[in-house]
Structure formats: C-alpha cells, structure tokens
C-alpha cells in the first residue's frame, strides 16, 4: 500500500501553501506535463478531476505530486453524486478525503448533479429537480462531504438541457439556500450559465444578478458546442472542447467587475490543444483579473 499519512491535528504540511487568490488556472492534462515543467511562468494554478487520481499509485500520483510541489492545485470532484437521492458512496468519500489530505489543495469543489443510481455509474453530470425535498437531501450530502474532508467545498452550478416540471425553486434560489444551510461556497461556471440560459431561454444576466457572488470561491470558463433542439432552436452543449466563446468572456467581465478577482479556471477536457493554446486562454483571463485588481472601485455597479 502507498503510505497516505492520516494524522490528526498538528500535521506538518507536506507541500507549500501557495496562494491562489486573483489568479487564472488551467485544467491539468497529462499531455501538457513536459511543457508545463519547461515553462518558466505557466499559470496561477492547476485543476484536476479528483477521480483521475484515485488509483493507489503510479504515474498519475507522481505527476500530480511534482505539480503540487511548484503550484497550487484545485481538486475538482466529478462523481460524488451530491445531487442524487441515494446516500453518498462511502468508499468514494474515503478516497476523496485521502486525496485532500495527500495534496492539500487550495480549492475543493463538486457539482450540483448526480451520476450514480442504484449501483450503476453513468459518467455524466445528470440534472435534478429543485424542490424542498431535493434541497434537504443535497444539503445532507454536502454536510456529509464537508464533515468527511473537514473543510468547506465549492458547489458548481450545472449546465442543463431539460427541466423538471416538478421544480418549485429557481436554481440560484436553490444554491443560495444550500450555502445558507451548509456553509459551502460556490463555484460559478459562467459557461454553464450561458449554456443553460440559451437552452432554457432565460437571461444569463438576470441569472447572474440573482447569484450570490459573495460566496463564489472559484469561477470556471470553458468552450461549448452547438446543436439543435426538437424545434430547431439552438441547443448548447457543455463540451469543454474549444476556446471560451465571446459571449462568455463578456459575462465573465461583468461578473469579475462585481465580484472582484476570484480565481478562475480555463477548463479544456476534450480535443485538447497544445499547451500554448490553453495557456493563452488563461493569460487572457489573468489580464481581466489584473485589470480588476488594479481598479477595484467599481464594486457592484454593473449589477
């Protein structure tokens, strides 16, 4: 077995406590490792999908440890199934906890979605109705996860393609209430807002006006793909396979103008480009963050 020290209390940190505030980061992809280590100034932080580092040992852990020695890491969970009705998978919770202890991530996040039902894992971020019943259940799950890892998580707003007629709460209302009940923070995915707004025909700006930005600890930006719905209208797919769309950059600048320089990640998970392309997206993000940091007086004026 690999030694994963689980020592309570005064445990000496194994990695430097790098600050992550006000920086732009990038998804960590194995194909970029050599280029990243050769780059004198790559990005502010790297984000990994927790599940890709849940094996016992081998190259993934060696690579992540080498990254964590030099830069802050954000641990992003994809399959905790927090938004599902059934109890959380205790084995998965234990694996997640040991990753948090092993890598001391600067940020820890999960999704408002679910992926497992009964014993089947569907490998997708599936949607849930927003009702008092689901609110209570999701809050229990967040409590359980936060107790297990002994720190608050950031919960990400989903991109969705369907609605549940049984929903009685709006998504921002649902998220706001989860923050109040559990003390969790939020991960605002601006691309998801744009995708869902387009797919469901609501205003992204109105959604953002109702989003509790004061609780946002991280922002995601990503590319999306275009399809059509049954009526021939535009249906956007949260594909993470290309550059950030112009409309999403616009929304992002508005958000940053209101929230201040929140750490922001460029997600790119499919059709992965060469490192300089991904880095250029992060650099564009960093310029927006730096501009805001230089003149922070605008406050909530854009809302």
């Amino acid at each position: 077995m690999v030694a994963v020290p689980i020592i309570e209390g005064a445990r000496a940190a194994r990695f430097p406590a790098f600050p992550v505030g006000g920086t732009a980061g990038a998804s960590l992809k194995p194909e970029h490792l050599a280029a990243i280590h050769a780059d004198p100034a790559p990005v502010g932080f790297f984000e990994v999908h927790a599940e890709n580092y849940m094996g016992a040992g081998g190259p993934p852990h060696a690579a992540l440890a080498a990254i964590r020695e030099r830069w802050p890491v954000s641990l992003h969970g994809v399959c905790m199934s927090i938004g599902g009705p059934q109890p959380l998978d205790k084995d998965h919770l234990r694996r997640f906890k040991s990753l948090v202890e092993r890598y001391e991530p600067a940020l820890v996040s999960e999704h408002l979605a679910w992926a497992t039902h009964d014993t089947t894992y569907f490998n997708d971020l599936l949607p849930l109705p927003y009702t008092q019943a689901t609110l209570a259940r999701v809050a229990e799950h967040i409590d359980e996860m936060q107790e297990a890892i002994r720190r608050p998580i950031l919960l990400e707003n989903p991109s969705t393609y369907v609605v549940f007629p049984e929903s009685t709460l709006g998504e921002t209302e649902f998220l706001r209430e989860l923050v109040r009940r559990t003390g969790c923070g939020l991960l605002l995915d601006v691309n998801n807002v744009f995708v869902s707004a387009t797919n469901h025909g609501f205003s992204a700006l109105e959604y953002l006006a109702g989003f509790p930005l004061e609780h946002v600890g991280e922002i995601h930006l990503a590319g999306h793909a275009e399809q059509e719905d049954d009526e021939g209208a535009l249906l956007l797919i949260d594909s993470h396979d290309g550059p950030v769309a112009d409309a999403v950059w616009k929304l992002y600048e508005i958000v940053i103008g209101r929230s201040g320089p929140v750490p922001t990640l460029i997600e790119w998970d499919s059709d992965i480009p060469d490192w300089p392309v991904l880095k250029a997206e992060a650099e564009a993000t960093q310029r927006i963050l730096d501009r805001e940091a230089a003149c922070p007086a605008r406050g909530m004026a854009h809302a």
Partner: peptide, 12 residues
C-alpha cells in the same frame, strides 16, 4: 422531464 416553455425534450 420536459423542455422549457412546453418544448419537447427528446433531443434534449
């Protein structure tokens, strides 16, 4: 599930 505003949810 449904589409928004009475739309179909098949392709969705």
């Amino acid at each position: 599930i449904a589409g928004p505003n009475g739309k179909s949810a098949k392709k969705r």
